[in-house]
Every structure is written in C-alpha cells, then in structure tokens.
C-alpha cells in the first residue's frame, strides 16, 4: 500500500507536530516554563525594579530569567518519551537525526512562545526599551536557537539518568556559558543605543557557537539515542 518517499524534512516536522499536539493537550512543559518565568520576573521586578538598575544588569537579568525558565521544562521532551516507553518505538521508526531536529524545533518553538510572553512584561515592569529592535530580536532568536540546540542532546542524556531535573541544569550551565556571555553582551548593546557594528564580535561568537554546537550535537546524538 504505502510509498517510501516521505522526505527527511517532513518526517522531522511530523516529530515536532506530534510534540506540539501532545503539549497542547497536556500542557506538560509550557505551564512549568511560563510559571517559572513569571515568578522569576516578579521577584526581580520587586527586588530591583525600584533601584533603577543599569542596562547591563537588566540584560543579564533578562537572560537569567530565560535560562532558568528553560531549565525547568526543556528536559521534558525526552524524559517523558523515555518514561512512558514511546522512545522505543521512535527508535525503531526513524533515524536519530529526525528525532534530534524534531525535538530541537519543538524546544525552540516552546522558548519562542515563552519569549513572546516575557519580553513585553519585562519591558513594562523594568522600564527598559531596546533602542535597536532588530539587534534585540536577532539576539533573542539566535540565543534561543543555540539554547534549544545545546539542551536537546543534554535532555536526551539526562533522560537516561536519575535525578534528572538537577542534573539537566548542572550539565547545561557550562555548555551554555559562552552563549549566555555573548547574548548578554549583544542585549546590552541593544539596550544602550549601540548598533550592529558595536556588537559584531559577540554576534560572530554567537553564530559560530550556534553552528558548531548544533552540528556537534546532531553528530553525537546517535550515541546517546541508540543505546
């Protein structure tokens, strides 16, 4: 009956779509991530909002919120798959790279949804407006791409271990540190009236990081997935 001509891309999108449909029905990850972000944002607004903190500090706080919120939910993508036993049928159904990029895209969309909620609130609560919106949005998007790329393989590693939540943060932090430093630099520039030229060095680092980390993770993914 069937044809064996479905492309790599549409198989990958099928994995992402399946995760989105499940997420819509269970709200397993998005609730945790959004609530975590809101709570952190509120705590930060209450504690430093009155002190008129510098733009450098605000851009660091912005990424602290995104980093910890993503730590609270991104690992779910694999943990659930492993716990319920669906990982097995997925392994026997397609190449690892399809699972990797499908999950990575799902995590990216999850973080994008989170940012769309958090950015306006952050701007309103902490009274900071990016002077260069293109640079700011570019930094956020590139940052989220790197964040989802690096954490997808770590989530797969963690799903095979115990004490998953804590381990996910412990393993992710050193890996994400170069990304965080670069993206905080760029965000600062976008808050303080700088242009693309002022942020060119961290932008180069960010692009290099995203490309190298995603390539490396997808290469190593089969070693994690197929055991």
């Amino acid at each position: 009956m069937p044809t064996r001509s479905i492309s790599w891309v549409s198989k990958t999108l099928a994995v992402t779509r399946k995760d989105i449909v499940s997420e819509f029905r269970t709200r397993y990850a998005i609730n945790a991530i959004v609530m975590f972000a809101l709570v952190t944002l509120t705590v930060i607004s209450f504690s430093v909002g009155l002190l008129s903190p510098s733009k450098e500090i605000l851009s660091a706080l912005f990424w602290v919120i995104l980093f910890f919120a993503s730590m609270s939910g991104l690992a779910q993508a694999f943990i659930k798959e492993e716990e319920t036993g669906t990982a097995m049928i997925l392994r026997l159904s397609c190449e690892g790279s399809i699972v990797f990029f499908g999950k990575m895209l799902f995590n990216f969309l999850l973080l994008l949804t989170l940012s769309i909620l958090v950015v306006p609130l952050f701007i309103v609560f902490l009274k900071v407006v990016p002077t260069d919106w293109t640079l700011f949005i570019g930094a956020v998007l590139m940052g989220l791409i790197g964040l989802s790329g690096a954490t997808t393989i770590i989530a797969a590693i963690v799903s095979k271990a115990s004490v998953q939540g804590a381990l996910f943060t412990v393993l992710s932090f050193p890996v994400l540190l170069p990304l965080l430093v670069a993206v905080i630099e760029i965000t600062t520039v976008s808050f303080t009236g700088g242009t693309f030229a002022d942020a060119s060095a961290p932008l180069q680092l960010l692009v290099a990081y995203d490309v190298i980390m995603i390539t490396l993770s997808s290469m190593l993914f089969d070693f994690v997935w197929r055991i």
Partner: peptide, 28 residues
C-alpha cells in the same frame, strides 16, 4: 517489535498514533 517496554503516545488517539508511526517510518 512488540514488548511491554514499548508504548504508544497516551495523548494521541489510536488513529493519530498509527498515522504518526507510519509517517516517521516513511509510509503514507
């Protein structure tokens, strides 16, 4: 493979499960 440690997606219907599994296997 059919085994006790292999399962399908609880939040998908039977039909959605079969469609998804076929699709990632390259079937329509």
């Amino acid at each position: 493979l059919v085994g006790p440690y292999l399962s399908l997606y609880g939040s998908l219907t039977a039909r959605e499960n079969l469609k998804f599994i076929s699709k990632v296997n390259g079937l329509m």
